[in-house]
Design a protein around this nucleic acid. Structure first.
Lengths: 333, 333
DNA sequence: CCTCCTCTTTCATACGTATGCACACTAGCT
DNA sequence: AGCTAGTGTGCATACGTATGAAAGAGGAGG
């Protein structure tokens, strides 16, 4: 039932290769022939087989995107812009989630069904990037970086952490807590590093009882806050690994009857759209999420198309503290 | 640089077809040969080319998923389970968003690069389903249904709307509003239909000033509420097209200083995880979102694999009102 | 009238895997 | 020993498109 270029050729009275060339705009085909072929293709509703094409050209025009968890409200803000940018550049998007072991999932990525891969949730200890390098599948780190050298687009997370620390110190906080992301993510690690460093410069240390680590999820913040508030003294401010965690904290605070910001300052990271909802008005660290995703798509496409063949490039976006209504001076006592 | 089955064959000292058969578990290949081939494949890090395979078998083992807008917090809850179920059944997921005209985007869907398609945001007036039928690309409606007959999985939206209406009436509301979804979606239309019908049965009519329509987005609820509250009399309860809209309403209420539920009852639809956050505690209509997605994936896979070839099947899930903390009796005045 | 050149088209083949069919070889039976 | 049945492998080819090389047509120039 599939219409092939042969069928079109027969109807147009030309050879199959001529059909291929005519439809692809090869200048060697006469206008007259192009017109005949176009009409025949139209009449038959011909759509070139992508499988045949990619077998012949060794280009699939597909890019994979790998994330751990779609349900996390953060990732759609990366995946959406990625999709749009890829489509604009003539690539389709395949979505993979990385539940199983990295090694096992490498197989399905290197069967030449994708030209390249966007790693959006790579961990520092993942074996996947090295494996991809070995298999020569081009990839780009997005948001999180890995240890294997490759194109990367990320935020200056240390700087972001520093900005938050300085703000909290300036607001007068001395008992400060942190609910950081996983140690094995560059985002989690660097935000914490910058935050701790700037606090240390101000002569403030984080007590272990005021620190938690966990995945960048709502539940992490929601479950960690009660524990932090049980410490004596309790922290008057909490810096969260990202907005989703911070919203979990706000949720817990509401449940506990803790008023924000009069009793507790909460700061997030990323400035996802939800952060500016009236329900949250979250003070956070803004960066260009959409631009980051599109830039990553651009770097990868340049790489897989051969337009760029040099050393890995690293694009670092600048973050900026955005004060909304979840931060303020600690209550005096 | 790509390792092919020929390379493996050479190393194993067999023919290329034997490699193919051995690795695919053809029982006609002797154990001895299978072992040799396996070792050779292992040694060369051989991964079968997906392009070659799909050209030969005419099966891509890829399923497309079409949604309008990923940033909407609703869709990840469909796309996530879809991905998992598809992967479990041996299919990869390609993600498409439908921004451009349906006709234009049909082309890219029928190039035989996917075996089937999940329509998650189909509108009643879309030309795409008919076009897909004409091109013989199997598809399934998920959540929203269309007019062209096809496999479908959906909720009994009328019933859900009725349940909400009965609850509001029972709670004593007489001035009731609705912020419904688009008329050209089955979900929007049926929820409104059931809601209106049950209200009419109770002798209550919806005033036009209490009714809005809009896309299933946060902004729809956020922007519509002030308008509804400006009516005289103002509604004491608002039924929203889905949870995302309802959360927009809650957000606006908070911004306006309107207390929920003492001054305003708000009810959503879907029971997405966010609905149960302490920040919202949204009363809503629950259905099995995850199960719905997985069922759709199952129907489609059975269809594209040829396991099922009969008439279109329609699976309808039952919804159930879930009372949380955004509904109650109207304030007496 | 022949040659050479340009322009357009066809020929032949590659891409990598899967599969119907033929073939070779072994074993079992009479 | 000869025939049949059964088993395992190779041969030939299909899948649909793209592309380098060759061929054909037509015109210009000598």
């Amino acid at each position: 039932m599939g219409i092939t270029s042969r069928d079109v050729a027969r109807l147009a009275g030309v050879s199959q290769p001529t059909v291929s060339r005519a439809l692809r705009g090869d200048p060697r085909v006469s206008e007259e022939t192009v017109r005949k072929v176009r009409m025949a293709a139209e009449a038959l509703n011909y759509v070139p087989s992508e499988a045949g094409r990619s077998l012949s050209t060794r280009i699939s025009h597909r890019i994979g995107v790998l994330v751990t968890d779609l349900a996390n409200p953060f990732y759609p803000h990366l995946v959406g812009p990625l999709h749009d940018e890829l489509e604009q550049r003539g690539y389709r998007m395949m979505l993979f989630t990385e539940r199983s072991e990295a090694a096992a999932s490498a197989e399905r990525l290197v069967d030449r069904s994708i030209d390249g891969l966007v790693l959006a949730t790579s961990t520092l200890d993942s074996a996947l990037p090295a494996e991809l390098g070995r298999r020569e599948l081009p990839f780009v780190y997005l948001n999180r970086e890995g240890t294997t050298p490759a194109d990367a687009v990320a935020v200056d997370n240390r700087l972001g952490g520093e900005q938050v620390a300085r703000q909290l110190v300036e607001d007068g906080h001395r008992h400060i807590g942190g609910i950081f992301g996983p140690d094995n993510t560059s985002t989690g690690r660097d935000r914490e590093l910058g935050f701790r460093q700037a606090l240390a410069d101000a002569g403030i240390a984080l007590r272990p009882a005021h620190v938690r680590h966990g995945p960048f999820e709502f539940e992490t913040g929601r479950d960690a806050l009660p524990e932090l508030l049980a410490a004596d003294p309790a922290p008057t401010a909490v810096f969260c690994g990202n907005d989703v965690v911070a919203i979990g904290v706000l949720d817990a605070a509401r449940r506990l009857g803790v008023d924000v910001p009069s009793q507790l300052t909460v700061v997030g990271f990323d400035d996802i759209p939800m952060a500016s909802w009236a329900s949250f008005e979250l003070s956070t660290v803004r960066h260009d999420l959409r631009g980051m995703a599109r830039t990553a798509a651009g770097l990868l496409v340049e790489r897989v198309s051969g337009a760029y063949q040099g050393e890995p490039r690293r694009v670092v976006l600048s973050p900026r503290f955005v004060g909304r209504r979840t931060h303020g001076a600690p209550s005096g006592n």
